[in-house]
Amino acid sequence: MDKKQRLHLLGVYNYTVILTYVGMLFAFAGIHFVFSNNDRSFILALLCLMVAGLMDMFDGKVASTKKNRTPSEKLFGIQIDSMADIISYGVFPSLIVYKLAIGDKQYPVEHPWQARIVICICALYLLCALIRLSYFNVDEMERQNQTSESRHEYRGLPVTSVAVVLPAVFIASYFMGNSRPPINTATIFLLIMAIAFITPFKMLKPHLIGKIVLILIGLVELALLLLGKAYCVPTAEKDPSIVFENKATIQEIETKSEEAF
């Protein structure tokens, strides 16, 4: 190794991996919001998950525009993408549901046995995401040794799908009038996705039209999250058991307060 190489930082820092790095940082910010007690913490966490998914949607396309990438840069891109994905779509989503399961002083656990089941499913989800991403790395490296064509299909459900599915679960729960976070529904979807991650069915890779559809779905989810004003972490002035700022629930609390006086 010559002196010039020794002076370089380890890793790749050109534009081909910038979106991957940014997406992972948004996931880290989302994890911070999951464990913060500020207003709108859950809505911010879900927004971070969606932004991370958007970054992942285009990082491969951006990387492919650089025609003179070395074999080492290509391999680094494969590895760093999956390592970022395990944080963004493995650890991060499982922690969202895990946080709801363990509760806190503001949202105590009502059924400890249920919390243990949810925690186990969160762990299973993370394990399946890890297995899928590791398998994808091996499969992609073998594929690139055989052909230079772009991938046209996936085997199993991509882990990035959680960036669309999980926000939709919370949005649907809120607009159905639920005053508590959808722990059971979110857990069931995590379990379904975990199984789909490692099930070898074929799934077409979305191209331009598919990506436009996913972006439109994301924009609709974004609007509903902002309009719904859901997933508000309670403040001291509110009922400490309320996590959603649901109008029906707030009215119920106000009625009980008036009756108490």
Rank of each mutant, 00 (worst) to 15 (best):
M83E: 09
G53Q: 04
M57K: 05
L47Y: 12
A52P: 15
S88D: 07
I87Q: 03
L75A: 14
V91W: 05
I80Y: 01
F58H: 10
I87N: 05
D59L: 03
Y89G: 04
V91L: 14
K61I: 07
D59M: 03
S72K: 15
Q79G: 05
M83K: 06
E73M: 09
S72T: 08
G90E: 03
I80L: 04
A63C: 09
M57Y: 05
S94K: 00
K61M: 08
E73K: 09
L49S: 05
Q79S: 12
V51R: 04
T70M: 15
P71Y: 06
I80F: 02
D59S: 02
S82W: 14
P93E: 00
G77K: 03
R69C: 11
E73D: 06
K61G: 05
C48E: 09
A52I: 06
A63L: 08
I87S: 03
S88M: 05
I86N: 02
M50F: 03
L75Y: 13
G77L: 02
A52G: 13
S82A: 11
I80H: 01
T70Y: 15
F92S: 02
R69P: 07
L75N: 15
D81L: 10
K61Y: 06
G60W: 14
L47V: 11
F92A: 05
A52L: 07
T70Q: 15
D56F: 10
S72C: 10
I78G: 04
K66T: 11
P71D: 15
K61S: 09
L54A: 12
A52C: 09
S82H: 13
D56C: 08
P71K: 11
M55Q: 06
M57V: 11
L49K: 07
K61W: 07
L75I: 08
T65D: 00
F58M: 12
I78E: 04
S88P: 13
G90V: 04
M83D: 08
A84W: 11
I86Q: 02
L47A: 03
G53T: 14
L54I: 14
S82L: 07
L75M: 14
M50C: 08
G90W: 00
V51M: 07
L49Y: 01
D81G: 10
S94R: 00
V51P: 14
D85Q: 07
F58T: 07
K66H: 14
P93D: 00
I86V: 13
L47M: 10
K74I: 11
P93L: 02
A84S: 13
M55N: 09
D85A: 09
L75D: 15
K66A: 12
D56T: 10
C48R: 09
F92W: 01
F92D: 02
D56S: 10
